[in-house]
Design a protein around this nucleic acid. Sequence first.
RNA 1: GGGCCGUUAACUCAGUCGGUAGAGUACUGGAUUUUUAAUCCAGGGGCCGCGGGUUCGAAUCCCGCACGGCCUACCA
Length: 484
Amino acid sequence: MFESEQEKIRIDKLNKLKAQGIVPYPYKFEISHPISTVRANSADLISGQSEVQIAGRLIGIRKHGKATFADIRDSSDKMQLYFKSNVVGDKYELLELLDIGDFIGVKGTVFVTHMGEVTILVQGFTLLSKSLHPLPEKWHGLQEVELRYRKRWLDLIMNPDIKLDFIRRSKLISTMRTFLDSKGFIEVETPVLQPIYGGAFATPFKSYYKSLDRDFYLRISDELYLKQLIVGGFDKVYEFCKDFRNEGMDRLHNPEFTQLELYQAYADYEDMMLLVEDLFDVLSDGKEIEYQGTKISFKRPWRRLAFFDGLKEYVGEELSDKEDADLVKLAESKGITVTRDYYRGKILACLFDVLVQPYLIEPTFVIDYPKDISPLAKERRQRTEDRGQNLVERFEPFICGIEIGNSFSELNDPLEQVARFKLQGEAREKGDIEAQVLDEGFIESLAHGMPPTGGLGLGIDRIVMLFTNSHSIKDVLLFPQMRI
RNA sequence: GGGCCGUUAACUCAGUCGGUAGAGUACUGGAUUUUUAAUCCAGGGGCCGCGGGUUCGAAUCCCGCACGGCCUACCA
């Protein structure tokens, strides 16, 4: 650390500052305006000869002997500074000890240069923080993608425009919160550390709780806890839930990610579809977005595509009445490897993911999934057009081929729920390591009675990707997971 | 998991046929009181990702590994 030539020079400057009695890391500085405000009101500030105090990071220095131009930037904008030796006096010499990257505070008056740039004529200045490590080059900046993810602070300094995406993320989440609050939903918090994980198919991260001497898991979902709150009498609850899944990472997956899960008593999955349409109408402000070159409209109603209709449309045949063996054959003919412990629904889901999902560009609700891959969802109500049994009331919304959520008419029959977990147990014994584990507390809560309930989970990171036109989930996570 | 590409100064990048490691920015010293990629002069700065191999000699050729990116597959 601090061994490069440039770092040694800066530490040397730091020591010279200290020797002059200057505190290189003072405690605070009174700011009269953010830079953007100075800019917006420059005419008034100039005519009034008003003194302003602004602060920020030094991002450029141009020395001209007894005059020096510099640029500082705060979170709102940047501003040119003009130091003249006959104005700042002896302090002018201190400029020699400042570097690009330092934070300074200045007081001065606003004027416009011959070149038309709004500038502060500096009357006095204070070092607010000495920077010891040089910043990347001034016009190519920091480009190496790996460094941008690993050293996000540097990325933010050198590529400040990326802040807009993270501000957008924050605003989208706050809009969701306002939307749900206005509909009477209550925001709750549930455990991240769970003795039994559940609510989704995934491999968990395992931890160990010393004082209880037992294994705990980082949650893969908060579903089972939120439903217990519905049992307890909250009619509408939601949680922005950081989930952890011990799986690979790629442009759509980070091992820790954020889901919005919400549950509404006396509602079903049809209500959840309407809620999603409403939400996206608000999030998009009724406007189209463009994602990776494709224009997307969230205009209601979204397309509703039955799971088996999707397969029929893109595979060319009706699959609901096919034998398992034929499904395996079909999968293999499409180059999809099917291992032996796969059960029917999983084969179908694989086929769907590969053959149908990539083509779901316009916002689409895929509805009515196979029962055996949906152990927490209610059986589908019988309708005249039904193609047999074994469907549940479940949908997943897709946009641009990306799965952005999951929703059910929640199963609230405790005996049926036990039976579904039992089937999951059998799948687990056959080697399906993601099969869901029976949670006795959850079953007991259902046994006390849960009202009919609609549940919805939305992948927040992926939704932010859509609205910020980000190709990778890493671009909407400030600190994406990287290999160590 | 597979394929392709990348890794050289703090950053952005060159580096020919295998023959002493280059530029710009940044940094240091000097000149410069309206510049804004300031300009001009001079200078310092390298584990060429890591480990092997071939060779008189490797940043360069070969093998392996690590990390990253894109594509692809898988994991719902």
